[in-house]
Amino acid sequence: MNYDRGLAKRLKEGETTALQELYSATFAPLYRFAYFQAQGDHEVAQEIVHDAFLEAVRSISNYLPDKGSLQAWLCGIARNRVRALRREQDSERKAVRSLAASRPAEQTVVETDKPDMRVSINAALALLPNTYSDVLIQKYVKDKSVREIATETGQTEKAVESLLSRARAAFRESFTADGESHD
């Protein structure tokens, strides 16, 4: 979190390299997050990521390091954008329904943000720091051994095991915390 605090400070001071640092660290996970929130629609995902980054540079002064990482903050902005898009779509649907058949105009629309497991898992992964998500993918998705990962990353096997352990715990925490945002 100290890193995020320092990075945010540099951003507030207008340091362009800090922006590039933030961008390179968060672009991929944020895009992943947006992509799944957008039900696999690249166009919508691009719109969300675009709006999230612009909103972030405009309101960097609102970022509170104590409340989470910059990456989580960016994902929060993206999530708000997704909700706004859903509201827009809902109003379109109302128009369609009223055209498709004679129905009462004042339909109660129950908002539900509860995503399916595929979205939840990928969103939780996107909220993790890159080191954590990378090691989880290498180990479990690509089925590499700890030794292989250690060789590729230039770490000791012990360090990789420790990293994996922290990554798993962080993944569970991220998954649970993401659920909170839907309640």
């Binding site: 497991m117 990928n122 989880l136 798993r168 993944f171 569970r172 998954f175 659920g179």
Partner: peptide, 23 residues
């Protein structure tokens, strides 16, 4: 709540779900 439901998942279960749903 959704959070409470999610807290029931163990790390191993989540890893299995990650393998299943990762794209």
């Amino acid at each position: 709540t959704d959070r409470e439901e999610r807290m029931n998942f163990t790390e191993d279960q989540l890893v299995a779900l990650l393998v299943e749903h990762y794209e």
